Amino acid sequence: MADLPSLRETVARHGLDARKSLGQHFLLDPALCARIAALAGDLAGRHVIEVGPGPGGLTRALLATEAAEVVALELDRRAVAALAELAAAHPGRLRVIEGDALKADPAALVPAPRRIVANLPYNVASPLLVRWLRGAASLEGMTLMFQQEVAERICAAPDTEAYGRLSVLAQWRCRCAMLLRLPPGAFSPPPKVFSAVVGFTPHAEDPGPALFAAMERVTAAAFGQRRKMLRGALRPLGEAEALLAAAGIDGARRAETLGIAEFHRLASCLLARETRAVSDRIGSPKRI
């Protein structure tokens, strides 16, 4: 590490001006990067995936832990070139992959136990989170940085303004905790908003892909028209009143008043109804 150029020198040498189109805001303070890596917990023997490493500030901090391996996914070719010298300084411990994290499967990238630790590009942070929540059972945990507004939505409680679809999906699959808030000046260039680090610990119960898909449909409908009562908001799912009755939920309520367990019941009832419909279409096998 001592022979490596500073992060600011790396940025200058590789022409790594942060690009708005890629949602880039770089962390160049080594002490701050080390603090974020520490928030991820004990990484000894873990295989760590980092998304959008940029010039490698957080990457260096992760490599300074006892992680077995760090895999850095980067879409920006300039950053891939900048990270090559870091990989050379840590043979066998850093793999740099040029590619789109929205198309990557964490379970296929590294063996277990695996964690994701990343300062996420702002423009794809929410889609990435939802993708990883679908496969949360394969992860030991995630430590992710978002715009503070997004972080607050993730951790929001029912009956609050910030509570919404992302809150339900995240808290249904993980225990979520706000770990650190950062001012704009912590980044280069400074964003216009504060940022925050959220820790995710997956729940032991894995709902499976079919129930997760049902939960996505339920939350999309419920919060897509959040000012409407549920009997109206869930109408696109078909037979909204019957669905609500099966879940034991008053159709006059609104989405933001429902807890995670109530959304789970709605999604379970929707999946059961859809499963019965498929079974009915197939029909019973003919007797010969």
Results as ranks from 00 to 15, higher is better:
residue 239 E to G: 02
residue 250 D to E: 13
residue 224 G to Q: 06
residue 224 G to V: 12
residue 221 A to C: 15
residue 261 A to P: 07
residue 237 L to P: 03
residue 250 D to F: 02
residue 266 L to S: 08
residue 234 L to Y: 01
residue 226 R to V: 05
residue 251 G to L: 05
residue 227 R to A: 07
residue 241 E to H: 05
residue 233 A to H: 00
residue 233 A to W: 00
residue 249 I to H: 03
residue 234 L to C: 04
residue 231 R to M: 06
residue 226 R to L: 08
residue 245 A to F: 05
residue 226 R to C: 01
residue 219 T to P: 06
residue 258 L to V: 14
residue 246 A to H: 02
residue 257 T to Q: 15
residue 266 L to K: 11
residue 219 T to E: 10
residue 236 P to W: 09
residue 216 E to H: 03
residue 234 L to T: 06
residue 249 I to Q: 04
residue 237 L to D: 01
residue 216 E to A: 09
residue 263 F to P: 11
residue 239 E to Q: 14
residue 223 F to L: 07
residue 254 R to K: 12
residue 261 A to E: 15
residue 265 R to L: 15
residue 238 G to H: 14
residue 237 L to Y: 07
residue 215 M to C: 09
residue 241 E to V: 14
residue 238 G to T: 04
residue 247 A to Y: 10
residue 255 A to N: 10
residue 242 A to H: 00
residue 243 L to N: 03
residue 233 A to F: 00
residue 222 A to W: 12
residue 259 G to M: 06
residue 219 T to V: 15
residue 226 R to D: 05
residue 243 L to T: 03
residue 225 Q to I: 00
residue 240 A to S: 15
residue 218 V to W: 02
residue 260 I to F: 11
residue 214 A to L: 01
residue 251 G to I: 06
residue 247 A to P: 07
residue 236 P to C: 09
residue 254 R to M: 07
residue 237 L to V: 09
residue 257 T to R: 15
residue 237 L to S: 03
residue 259 G to F: 14
residue 240 A to Y: 01
residue 255 A to C: 07
residue 228 K to F: 02
residue 267 A to S: 15
residue 243 L to P: 04
residue 247 A to S: 13
residue 253 R to E: 12
residue 218 V to L: 04
residue 251 G to P: 02
residue 260 I to Q: 13
residue 226 R to K: 15
residue 220 A to V: 03
residue 223 F to Y: 11
residue 222 A to E: 13
residue 251 G to H: 03
residue 252 A to M: 08
residue 220 A to L: 08
residue 248 G to V: 09
residue 236 P to L: 05
residue 255 A to K: 02
residue 264 H to Y: 04
residue 253 R to T: 01
residue 216 E to M: 12
residue 242 A to S: 13
residue 265 R to Q: 15
residue 252 A to Q: 14
residue 259 G to Q: 13
residue 243 L to D: 09
residue 254 R to T: 02
residue 232 G to Q: 13
residue 220 A to D: 14
residue 224 G to M: 12
residue 233 A to D: 03
residue 239 E to P: 04
residue 217 R to N: 13
residue 215 M to S: 09
residue 255 A to L: 09
residue 222 A to L: 08
residue 225 Q to W: 00
residue 224 G to D: 09
residue 246 A to P: 01
residue 264 H to L: 05
residue 222 A to Y: 04
residue 238 G to M: 11
residue 224 G to Y: 10
residue 240 A to K: 03
residue 244 L to D: 02
residue 218 V to F: 00
residue 262 E to R: 01
residue 226 R to P: 00
residue 260 I to M: 13
residue 236 P to A: 10
residue 217 R to G: 01
residue 223 F to T: 03
residue 229 M to E: 14
residue 259 G to T: 13
residue 258 L to Q: 10
residue 267 A to G: 10
residue 229 M to A: 14
residue 250 D to I: 08
residue 243 L to K: 07
residue 259 G to L: 07
residue 261 A to T: 15
residue 220 A to S: 14
residue 244 L to V: 12
residue 251 G to N: 04
residue 260 I to W: 07
residue 244 L to E: 04
residue 221 A to G: 11
residue 244 L to M: 03
residue 244 L to F: 06
